[in-house]
């Protein structure tokens, strides 16, 4: 059940982070969403063997996390937890791609190792970007911005509803499971039949809850649409933010800044 506690903490801490007033939180969420999408597209558009060329892109999550007062260690931990699938698939690359691609002080490094490293860097950068997006703008502003960007109302309403009820249902499930454990102290396992009826009861309660929610909404004048009461206005600041991000992305995509730096360093040494 620790995972439900984790979920609760997660949702609370994200809401708390998103509620801060920082330089970044004054940026229009639409600009943040567009910049993040452009960033992710840029990261994945690199050559599959690119490693060093990807590293300058790490500046985005670091600077944005600082500007938004987001805990980088927390982001890092989540990034690591999210790694397994990409890592699992990437781990096979060194076996199947053995062409030497890099000469490292006389040591030949195969394309497989490079692409594995590239996959790991990609995973870190893309996941960090998503984490920072949600930590910075929060669920409510995200949905409002998605709505303004033309995402179907059905989905944004759905996201808002879900975000609101996840903790409630998770809490209910914890209590139900606690009750079960108290009545069956020796049973460490959860047989399928018990599982089915436990979740079944929760589902029935959930459906009844949905009915009550609907009645309450009708009583408050619900007409089929949930109003998303956020009003944004696009300022010059937002245009500037987006333009700087896009320009930096274009520069990093077209110029290998790492190699340039490395070359200058080597020149300085020799």
């Amino acid at each position: 059940m620790s995972s439900i506690e984790g979920l609760r903490r997660e949702v609370h801490s994200l809401d708390a982070t998103a509620g801060q007033s920082t330089w970044l939180s004054r940026i229009d969420p639409r600009a943040m969403i567009l910049a993040t999408l452009a960033y992710v597209l840029t990261v994945v558009s690199f050559h599959r063997h690119a490693v060093a060329a990807l590293l300058p892109l790490a500046i985005f999550p670091v600077v944005l996390a600082r500007l938004g007062n987001i805990d980088l260690a927390k982001v890092g931990l989540k990034v690591l937890l999210a790694m397994p699938f990409a890592l699992m698939v990437g781990l096979f690359n060194p076996w199947f791609d053995t062409n030497p691609r890099l000469n490292l002080f006389g040591l030949a490094v195969s394309g497989g190792w490079l692409s594995l490293a590239s996959i790991l860097v990609r995973a870190v950068l893309t996941v960090a970007a998503a984490m920072i997006l949600i930590a910075c703008i929060g669920m409510h502003r995200l949905c409002a911005a998605l709505d303004r960007l033309g995402v179907p109302r059905v989905l944004t309403t759905q996201l808002l509803f879900m975000h609101r009820y996840i903790l409630l249902l998770a809490g209910e499930l914890v209590r139900m499971n606690l009750a079960r454990e108290l009545r069956a102290p020796c049973a460490s396992t959860m047989p399928l039949a018990v599982y089915g009826s436990l979740l079944g009861h929760l589902l029935l309660r959930t459906l009844e809850r949905a009915q009550r929610i609907h009645q309450a909404m009708l009583a408050r004048g619900f007409d089929g649409h949930v109003p998303i009461g956020q009003v944004f206005s696009w300022h010059w600041r937002d245009t500037g933010f987006l333009a700087i991000c896009l320009a930096a992305l274009l520069l990093m995509r077209t110029t290998d800044l790492s190699a340039l730096l490395g070359h200058w360093l080597m020149k300085a040494v020799t």
Partner: peptide, 28 residues
Amino acid sequence: RSDARDHLAPLMGVLGAFVFAAQMINFT
């Protein structure tokens, strides 16, 4: 949208939360 039953919105929202929560409990 062409669906006449407006109780679908809260129902979908709560069922989404249910699936999310249900995936946190495992059977043996």
